[in-house]
Structures are given as C-alpha cells and as structure tokens.
C-alpha cells in the first residue's frame, strides 16, 4: 500500500501548492524584481517613495488604523462572545444579528457605511435632528476620518473575532466556573482568574490572524475616503499604479507593505509559540 499511496500523496501536496505558488507567490516575486528596476537595476523607486510625504502618511496610517481596528474588534468581540455564551441569556436572534455584518459582502458594508457617514448622510441627519452640529466624518486628512475608517473596518470583522473567541470559550469546562463560584469568586474575579487565562490561547491566535488581515486594509479606505483621504500602503500603491501609471513605484510601496506584514506576522507567531509553551502549566 505504502509506495502507491505515497506517490498519490506527493501529487496531492505538490499540485495544489504549485498552483498557489504559481498564481500568488511568483507574481509577488516578479513584483519584487520590478520594484528594483528603474531603467535598469536601482533603488530609485524606493528613493522616490521616501521623498514623498504621502508615502509617510500612508505608512503611519497603515500602523494606526489596523491597531485601532484590532482594539475595537477585540473589545466588542469579547463582550459579544461573553454575552452570547452565558448560558441563561442565549438568544439565536442576537447571535444571528451579531454574525450578520460578516455575512454581508464587504463592499456592501462599505457602500452602506458611505451613505451613513457622508456629510449629508444618515448619521449627520440624525445628529441634525437632535439639534447638534453635523460632523465631517470623512473629511480628508482629518483625525476624524481615521476614526471613521477604524470603526467601519471593525464593524465588518468583529463577528469573526467574536466567533473565534466563542470557540475558545466553549472549550472551558463548566466545572471550572462552578469551582470558582464555590470558592467565593464574584463575576469579575471569575472573569479575571478563570475565563481570561483559559481564553488566552484563543485570544492570541485571533490577534495574530486579525492583525495580519488588518494590516492589509484596502477597500475600506478606498470606498470611504478615496485613495488619498486616509492613505494606507495598499491604496497608496494602487493610486501610484492606477492614477499615476507608475507600476514600479507601486510595486516598491507594496513590497514595503509585504515586508511589514511578514515581520509582524512572524513576530506574532514567535510570541504565540512562546505563549503556548508558558501555557503548559495551565493545561
């Protein structure tokens, strides 16, 4: 059995992996080469970027927005996961409603968000009804626009964080809570000393996955503010390619993003590995 089964397994690994690598990794490699090509091999494309103030704004935003978005997602996602897994308060309606934003296509969520946050949109309409001043939610270059981008990005993805944390919560045995209650722990003490430590592996895993995804933010910014309102590296690269017709500089910008994602991703994995080793005592 072994020889022919092994041959089949080899084919089964090689074919899909080659397909993924040929379709996704090889183009990225080609892009890496192009980013060093400015009428011959040179660092000129990168130098042009470093002289562009828009690049530095994009780089800054590409750290700020994912960071804010992940924090909002985790606070909301954890609160939702805790409420929805509490046995007495289970509600299928709330659960479905909480998952809904993720089931809706991202572009539809963004379309909606645009109609809500536009200067003459529903949010300002509601504010005007209360007699207060409408706010420029999407005004380019404003901190408020950064805030809006963070909220909208988190809106779409919070259900994913919630589901991951719910999966983690469900692995905590009920006896642990009962034991804590018998030991006299209150709601917050139970959370602090039972739930949170037991949930830590799920939290770390979700943080890494979501962190990597958040760094690649593109459509939220493009739809809400256009490529230059709250530029991030992806939209900056896109506008270099699409509007400015400078594909090589666009590649240089996207390679810096790729480098950033790789460093943060691998760093996160190392932290997670060390964490799971420490966690041995708990298990």
């Amino acid at each position: 059995m072994n020889a022919s089964a092994k041959r089949l397994r080899t084919v089964f690994v090689v074919v899909p992996c080659i397909f993924m690598i040929a379709t996704l990794v090889l183009p990225a490699m080609n892009g890496l080469l192009l980013s060093f090509d400015h009428n011959g091999p040179s660092l000129a494309n990168y130098k042009i970027l470093f002289d562009d103030s828009m690049f530095w704004r994009a780089l800054g935003n590409n750290l700020l927005v994912p960071f804010g978005s992940v924090i909002v997602e985790f606070v909301l996602g954890l609160a939702l996961a805790l409420t929805l897994t509490a046995r007495r308060n289970r509600s299928a309606l709330i659960e479905t409603a909480a998952i809904l934003p993720f089931a809706i296509p991202e572009i539809v969520i963004l379309t909606l968000a645009r109609y809500i946050f536009l200067p003459r949109g529903y949010l300002n309409g509601a504010i005007a009804m209360t007699g207060m001043h409408p706010l420029p939610w999407l005004s380019p270059r404003s901190p408020l626009a950064i805030f809006t981008v963070i909220v909208v990005d988190a809106w779409h993805v919070t259900p994913v964080v919630m589901l991951m944390l719910m999966a983690g919560l469900q692995t905590i045995p009920a006896e642990l809570y009962e034991a804590a209650r018998l030991d006299g722990a209150g709601t917050f003490a139970t959370f602090r000393f039972v739930t949170l430590p037991m949930l830590m592996p799920a939290i770390v895993g979700a943080l890494i996955l979501r962190g990597i995804d958040a760094l690649r933010i593109f459509s939220t910014v493009l739809v809400l503010t256009g490529p230059e309102g709250v530029p991030v590296l992806s939209t900056y690269s896109y506008s270099l390619w699409d509007d400015a017709q400078k594909p090589h500089e666009a590649m240089a910008a996207s390679m810096i993003l790729a480098l950033m994602v790789t460093i943060i991703g691998i760093g996160g994995l190392l932290v997670a590995r060390r964490f799971s080793r420490d966690d041995g005592a708990l298990a």
Partner: peptide, 20 residues
C-alpha cells in the same frame, strides 16, 4: 504554504499578476 500565502498583501500580488 497556506500561512505563507496569507502573509501576501493583495496589492503586492495583483499588480504584477495583472502583467503576467
């Protein structure tokens, strides 16, 4: 391979892929 693929930003793939 799967986690490596996940690290690739869309924009770093899409532009050179368009050329190919």
């Amino acid at each position: 391979t799967v986690s490596g693929i996940r690290l690739l930003p869309m924009i770093a793939v899409a532009i050179p892929l368009g050329i190919i």
